[in-house]
Structures are given as structure tokens and as C-alpha cells.
């Protein structure tokens, strides 16, 4: 840019003058670019705090007064628009979120880690490249398309295979969320595995370890932090996902008794109901309190991850 800028200088193009102009432009540009980059970096923090502030401001009124917190956490009755008495109990929604996310992780973690081990350690160069591209493609599918697949394709398959009365349920949501988090888990944990120095592998081979022993005894412990980060990123993706679960889980307020029961998640509730509520109204405030609950869950997950990672590091240093 500055070069092009200098070229358009109307004064006769003498070499030294051009050089001088260029230098001036660079002198002027560099701090500017530096500042822009600095602002980009700090903006992340700014945005987090702004969102934090906004969600708390909207939810605080209900959180601090007005909302019966005991009922909020222990009642499975979510009836915000009841004609008898509005009830705001999120137990069933919480159970929905936990069951779907839990199932998704049960499927996605072994699948993702297995895929990462294969891609990083076993696959030949050609299949490795193909797999990586395809997995990245999987990550690029929009969540609404995933929801659509769950609703239209997976639902009938589940009915056919299990005899369940409806195909959109915990199982469906769990499988869809698992497929959505697998690409993240694979790519992050594959990076972690590849970051393990080759000397580790060579040393293990020299000691006569089999390939499986190298993976389970050497690579996994060495790449622990990265693998944990991968799993937690997957959990984060699964908990926060809205559109796919809204379509694939059935959106029914109940505590699930089996994998084949439809459920409703916290995120889907906010997505489905926020649009019609009036700012300042009770229902609106409660939806923001649910937002705060989701924030708290995310915070706990991240904090746990941090502590675990730090703990592992601490052990290493000893």
C-alpha cells in the first residue's frame, strides 16, 4: 500500500526522493498498524465484558428479586405463559442440556481422539491429507443444516431402528452434536499429538514399545493438555449449540427417562422464546437469567480446564 501510494506522488520520480517518501510513509504507518492490531487484541476483552454486562443488566432484576430461585433450579415446570400461574423451573431444561451434551461427548470424544490418533500417527501422507480436508469440511457445515439432517434424515432412521415413537429426541440431538464437535476435537487434538517431539517416539521405539504402547503410554501423557483442550472445546461447542438442538431434540419440556425421550435445552428455549417477549417483562428477564446460567456453566468448564491443565503442568515441573 505505501509503495503504491508513493508511486502516485506527482513530483518527478527521483530515486532518493521516492525512498524518502516511502520511509516517511512507513514511519507513519507502523504505529498506526500497531495500534489497529492492539485494538483488535483488546477488543476481545471488551466484547466479553460488554456481553457480560448486558446479560447481567437484563437479568439482574429477576435474579436479585422477583425470581424464586429455589423453584427456578428445582422445578421441572417451565410454563412462562401459563393462564393459571407462570412457573419458571429450569430443571427439565437443564436435564435436557446435560443429557444431550453428555451423550454427544460420550460419542464424540472416543471418535474424535481415535480419528486424531489415526490421522497423526497411522495414516499415510495421502489419506492423511484427504482426511484432514474432509474433517475440516465437516466443521464448515452450518448448524441449521445439521439440525435439518437430524430432523429429516436421522429422525426416521431412529424410528426405524429403535421403534421409538418419535425420531427427534436425546439420541438424535446427541448424535448430531457429536458429529458437530468431532471436527474440533480431531483438529485440535491432532495438532497436540503432532506437537509431541519425534525424539519421544524414537526413544519409545528404541525401548521396544509397540505402536499402541507408544500412543497410549507416551503420546497421550505428553499431549494431555492439548487433548483436554480439544475435549473441552468440543463440550463448549455442544453446550452452546442452539439451532441444531432446537430442531433435533424435539423441544419438549420434560426430564428424559430414556435416550428416546424428546427434550428441550436451555439454549433452544432462549432462541425460541426471546423473540416474542417484551423487554422488561418477567419472562424476558428469566430468559436472561438462563443466559447467566449458561455463562456460569461455560465459566466452570473453562475454569476446570484451566485448573486441570495447570495441575498437569505443576506435576511436570516437580
Amino acid at each position: 500500500m505505501p509503495e503504491a501510494d508513493a508511486n502516485r506522488e506527482p513530483s518527478p520520480p527521483r530515486p532518493w526522493s521516492m525512498l524518502r517518501t516511502f520511509h516517511v510513509a512507513v514511519d507513519w504507518c507502523e504505529p498506526l498498524v500497531e495500534w489497529i492490531i492492539r485494538i483488535c487484541g483488546w477488543s476481545a476483552i471488551l466484547f466479553v465484558f460488554a456481553i457480560f454486562f448486558f446479560v447481567f443488566r437484563e437479568g439482574s432484576e429477576m435474579l436479585l428479586g422477583g425470581l424464586d430461585l429455589k423453584e427456578f433450579f428445582t422445578s421441572p415446570n417451565w410454563r412462562p405463559d401459563s393462564v393459571v400461574r407462570p412457573q419458571y423451573g429450569i430443571l427439565a431444561l437443564l436435564a435436557g442440556t446435560i443429557s444431550v451434551t453428555g451423550l454427544a461427548m460420550l460419542i464424540a470424544v472416543p471418535l474424535g481422539l481415535g480419528a486424531a490418533v489415526y490421522v497423526a500417527e497411522f495414516a499415510g501422507p495421502r489419506s492423511k491429507e484427504t482426511l484432514k480436508v474432509v474433517i475440516e469440511l465437516l466443521a464448515a457445515i452450518p448448524s441449521v443444516v445439521w439440525g435439518f439432517i437430524g430432523y429429516m434424515v436421522l429422525g426416521p432412521i431412529i424410528i426405524w431402528a429403535t421403534g421409538a415413537p418419535v425420531g427427534i429426541n436425546v439420541l438424535n440431538g446427541g448424535i448430531i452434536l457429536a458429529l458437530m464437535s468431532v471436527p474440533i476435537i480431531v483438529s485440535v487434538s491432532e495438532d497436540a499429538l503432532r506437537a509431541v517431539p519425534d525424539s519421544y517416539r524414537e526413544a519409545a521405539l528404541a525401548l521396544g514399545a509397540s505402536r499402541w504402547e507408544i500412543v497410549s503410554r507416551v503420546l497421550f501423557p505428553a499431549a494431555k493438555n492439548g487433548l483436554l483442550a480439544a475435549v473441552l472445546l468440543g463440550v463448549g461447542r455442544a453446550i452452546g449449540e442452539t439451532m441444531a438442538v432446537l430442531m433435533a431434540t424435539g423441544h419438549a419440556v420434560q426430564i428424559p427417562h430414556s435416550l428416546l425421550d424428546p427434550v428441550r435445552t436451555l439454549t433452544a428455549t432462549i432462541a425460541a422464546e426471546l423473540g416474542e417477549t417484551v423487554s422488561g417483562e418477567e419472562h424476558y428477564g428469566v430468559l436472561f437469567v438462563i443466559g447467566i446460567v449458561l455463562f456460569a456453566i461455560a465459566f466452570v468448564v473453562n475454569l476446570t480446564a484451566d485448573l486441570v491443565v495447570k495441575g498437569i503442568r505443576g506435576e511436570k515441573h516437580d
Binding site: P76, N77, V84, V166, A252
Partner: peptide, 23 residues
Amino acid sequence: RDFKLGSIDQSGSKDVVALVSRT
């Protein structure tokens, strides 16, 4: 009277028809 909880709540009229026709 309120609705009984546990119904599958769809977001659109068309979705209800689509789901019932497959269930």
C-alpha cells in the same frame, strides 16, 4: 387450563404437519 408439559413443541405450523405425517 394449561397445556400438559412434555409435548413436542414445533416452531411452525408446517413443522407440526411434517412431523405428524412422519410419526
